[in-house]
Structure formats: C-alpha cells, structure tokens
Design a protein around this nucleic acid. Structure first.
Length: 515
RNA sequence: GGCACCGUAGCUCAGCGGUAGAGCAGGGGAAUCAUAAUCCCUUGGUCGGCGGUUCAAAUCCGUCCGGUGCUACCA
C-alpha cells in the first residue's frame, strides 16, 4: 500500500535584502499545511528556498564590491535562518544558484526548444540607461523637448536587444481550457477571475533571455544569453524533485499538489508556469493558492515609511507559537490581513491563555491536586458528556473539510468553538463541587475534559507544534499517539495513567513596564 | 475607460429569498477549581443610497455613491 503523497511549496524569496514578515507569513502558513498533511498520514515534501539570480542582485553586489554569488551567500543565510526561527519543517531549501538547478533548467529549456516554443528574436523597448531598466510606453511621460522620460525622471531610448522568446501565444486556449477543467487550479476565486480575464485578453510571446548581464543560468548552446527570471525561478519546484532524473528518490513528488504564493506573482504561476510545463511535456501542479498581504495597522508596510515588521523580532518577542497562531487565526487565508501589537496580545490572552491554556491548567491541576496526578477512569457517560465528546470527535472531519481549501483560519475557529464549549461544559458541571459530593462524576468530568483537550491539542499541532507538544506531554499522550489517526473517537485518552505535573502552556502576555 | 470583487453591530467578519448573526470590545450578574482565568444575561444595526421583481430581499435585477484588485488607453 503506497502512502498518499503531498508536495507543497512556498514561492522562493529574492534575497536582495532581509526577510520581512510577508516572507515569514507565507512560510508559517505553508508549514502549517505541510504539518497538517503529515499528521494526516501523507508522505510530504515541503520546499522553500531563494531565487538568487538577476540584475538586481548583480547591481547590489557591484555596489557593495562583492560578487553576486557572495551576496547571495550572505543574504540567503538570513532567509534560511527564518526557518528555524519560525519553526518551519521544510524538507529542503533550494537555491537557484545551485548546480542541480542549472541542470534542471537546461533540461527544461531544451524540452521547450524541442517542442518548437523557443525562438530567437529581438526584444525592443524603452530603456533607461541610468535605471538599467525597460519601461512600458504607458509609463513614460513626454517632456517639453519632445523626448520621453521614465517614471524616475531619467531619459529613455529605444533599444533593441537580441533575446529568446517563448511562444506563450500558443497556449492561450490550452490555459483557458485548464482553468475550466480544473476550477480550483487558481484560488481564491477572485484571483482566478483576474487571470482568466488577462488570458482572454490575449497572450504575447514572452522574452525569456537576456544578454545585458550575466548573473544567471546560461542558455544551452548560446551562453552569451542567460535565462530571464521566470524560467529560472519557477523551475525550482521541479528541480527539487530531481527532474529530469526519473530515478531520483523524489521524482514521485512531481506534480506538486499546491504552490503557495503571494498574490503579486499570480500571473507567473498560473499563466507562464503551466505553459512552460505543457511545452516541456511535464504534468502541471494541481493547484496554485494565493495568499494576501499583511498590513501594519491597516497601512502597507514599506521601508520608506519604516513600518516593516521583522519576523525574527516578532517571534522572539511574543514566542513562535503565538505568532504562528495569530497570523493563521486572524487572517482569513487568501485575504489581506492586518497586524498590530494590540491584536496579537488580544489573541494570545483571549484565545491561548484564557480559553485553552486556562482550561488545561484548571482541569489538570485539579487532577494533580486531588487525584495524585492520576487521570481518572470515566464512569457511565451521560448525555452531556456524550455531546461534548461528539463535538470533539467531529473536529477532524471539519478540519479536513476546511483544509481542502487551505482555510486555516476556519479550522482554528472551529477548534476554538469546541474549546469554548468545553469551558461551558466544565463550568456547568462544577467539578470543584463534585470533588466531595460525587467522586465518580468528578472523575468523569475531568476525563471528558482531558479527552477534549487531547483531540484539540493533536489537531492544533500543525499551527503550534511546540506548545501543543507540551500540552500533549502533560496530558500523558505518548509521542507515537499524536497523529490524526488518533482523532474522531476511535481512540480515547487512557484513564488510570499518572500524568506529569501540569505546567502553564500559554502564559498571559503582560506588556513590560516602560518606566 | 473595461472587467471583477467588496460596502451588515464600536472593530473583524459570517449569512446570500422566508421574522437580523458570531467573535472581540461595552454593560449587569453568578461562581471561586484555574494563568483575576470561567460561566450566564445584556446594550448595540433603516444589512452604503435610491428604484424594481416577489406573497416575502441583507439575500435577485437596475442604478448611484464609496472602496479594492486586475487590465487598457490617453501615443
């Protein structure tokens, strides 16, 4: 019996600076999905990485007097460190400057050539020498002297450069057919609408090589050209599976199940990428999911405004798990979201410390103090107990349903609804009064509560791996009994076992005194 | 300019043809096992404006206003 596979990727980051919270958000969300699938029994490949070539890297390196490779080396290190800093469980970290990627890109290029989709022509456009960039005619303004200038105010001239082109125009119908045949190929739907209207508007062939700089992957047979951004960058997803080596241990992972990307790069992933793959005769990824942007108190983050949030600082200040929980619970996945210190503290205290943390603490410390730490065996279950358990048992099905569209926020909201119900159950049964009046009932209420906590903790592991691990520790759940196979009522927490001393899992956040 | 989406309680949003909902915030009460956490009750909305379809519209249609995204043009 072969295990079901799941291949998920983030976009690869351009390490022309330091990682910001947008990179962190994408990594956290993708990681949570990857962890979910692993716990649900899939054989997962989770890939992230960096896109290190290109003119900007080369320019920045020149400015700093180092080689592009040295710059990539230095900046990529910081992006890599973000993995551990946010507790990401990626199986690989790919860099487009790696040898393996050069091989795969060359192979993909040759396939496209063989199909007849690559041809040599001239790339013509308005070029600003000072900016070292091309501008579209629509971006230009006409000066008093009749000459055109770029948005930056610099003069532009008409330049023609030899370039290889990809016959994107051939793929218009095939792409539209794809979007119709696989309606969730692009989600959320609003992104799908945009892409479809763009493709319906007609596709022009794509310039896919450059000769004006050399920090990139050489075009096979014509090394004065390097592959221009999209062929190079997108192909990383295939590289990681070892293609074209069909005996590679990871060959089985292509096609990817989902690419998680930001909404700014939708077109490249849903138009260019599938067209390249069709041309090369490779299977297409099953889905592309676009998340939104994060705003700082409703304002766009930008370096010039100085409101950019550093993911490292955020995680070290509030803790990795609370930060992960906050972004995944607060922001409907696929929509834009907003960050503020007040909002994160609100979530930490209300959802984590009060609702979940305190429920665990009050019930487990009751077991520790009154029962010598021995988890009670339940007596006969009443309707109320059964209803409570049924809610917990129903969680896994609801979670899978939500996750079929990567609705992490929805999954969390449903889990927290059960936690709220457990608080009602606990308060309604008043175990502190039952302690003397009805010891058997006392034990039953505590057992049911512990069982609900067990299922909640197992299911929330993808979002808060460390904290949920600790919670499962103090619930006495063995490490090999923490997968989703243990959910839904088929397995129960074992009464009669001795639990470790309870410790607070989610401390209340109190703002440090600012003298 | 075109296309799409959105505008519902102070805030974030769900509902998408059948008597206005959730969470948080605000107000009152209960309890005291617990990280002063929890539980119960409660204030609060002409569902952006106007017009239409319908026995019935937040929900469908038209139009206007406001916002967002994609795209085009003014060469």
């Amino acid at each position: 019996m072969s295990q079901e596979r799941f291949y998920i990727t983030t976009a690869i980051a351009y390490p022309n600076g330091a990682p910001h919270i947008g990179h962190g958000y994408e990594l956290i969300a993708t990681d949570a999905i990857a962890r979910f699938m692993r716990l649900d029994g899939r054989d997962v490949l989770f890939l992230t990485g960096s896109d290190e070539h290109g003119q900007k890297m080369q320019q920045t390196a020149e400015r700093e007097g180092i080689s592009p490779r040295q710059l990539a080396e230095r900046n990529t290190a910081r992006f890599r460190e973000m993995g551990p800093a946010l507790n990401a469980s990626n199986d690989d970290y790919i860099r487009t400057s790696e040898e393996r990627h050069y091989k795969t890109c060359a192979a993909l290029w040759e396939k496209m050539v063989a199909t007849g989709d690559i041809y040599l022509d001239k790339y013509a456009g308005w070029y600003s020498v000072r900016d070292e960039a091309y501008y579209d005619a629509s971006e230009l303004t006409k000066g008093a002297d009749g000459n055109y200038t770029a948005p930056s105010g610099t003069p532009v001239e008409w330049v023609e450069e030899e370039s290889y082109f990809f016959r994107l125009s051939r793929y218009q119908d095939k792409l539209l057919e794809l979007y119709e045949r696989v309606p969730n190929f692009i989600s959320p739907e609003t992104r799908r609408n945009e892409v479809m209207s763009f493709v319906k508007g007609g596709l022009k062939d794509l310039s896919v090589s450059r000769t004006t700089f050399d920090w990139g992957i050489p075009v096979p047979g014509d090394p004065k050209h390097i592959m221009y951004v999209w062929v190079d960058a997108l192909t990383n997803y295939v590289t990681a599976t070892g293609w074209p080596d069909e005996t590679h241990p990871r060959a089985k992972f292509w096609p990817a199940d989902v690419h998680i990307i930001g909404k700014d790069i939708v077109r490249f992933h849903t138009v260019y990428w599938p067209a390249f793959l069709m041309s090369a005769g490779l299977p297409l990824p099953k889905r592309v999911f676009c998340h939104g942007f994060l705003f700082n108190k409703g304002e766009k983050m930008s370096k010039s405004v100085g409101n950019v949030i550093d993911p490292f600082a955020l995680a070290s200040h509030y803790g990795i798990d609370p930060v992960r929980y906050f972004f995944l619970r607060e922001v409907p996945f696929g929509q834009d979201g907003s960050y503020s210190p007040e909002a994160i503290v609100q979530r930490m205290n209300a959802d984590l410390a009060n609702d979940l943390g305190n429920l665990a603490q009050r019930s487990l410390s009751m077991i520790a103090k009154n029962l010598g730490g021995e988890l009670p065996q339940p007596g006969p279950l009443g309707d109320e107990d059964k209803a409570m358990l049924a809610e917990a048992d129903g969680l896994i099905a609801m979670a899978r349903e939500a996750m079929s569209d990567f609705a992490l926020h929805q999954m969390l909201s449903r889990i927290w609804a059960v936690i709220a119900e457990a608080n009602r159950y606990f308060a309604g049964n008043e175990p502190w009064a039952l302690r003397k009046s009805n010891p058997e009932r006392f034990g039953t209420v505590l057992w049911v509560t512990a069982e609900v906590l067990r299922q909640v903790a197992i299911l929330t592991q993808p979002v808060m791996p460390t904290a949920c691990g600790k919670l499962l520790d103090i619930l006495g759940v063995p490490v090999d009994k923490r997968s989703f196979a243990e959910l839904g009522g088929g397995a129960r927490i074992v009464g009669g076992s001795t639990l470790p001393a309870p410790v607070a899992i989610f401390p209340r956040y109190v703002e440090a005194e600012t003298e």
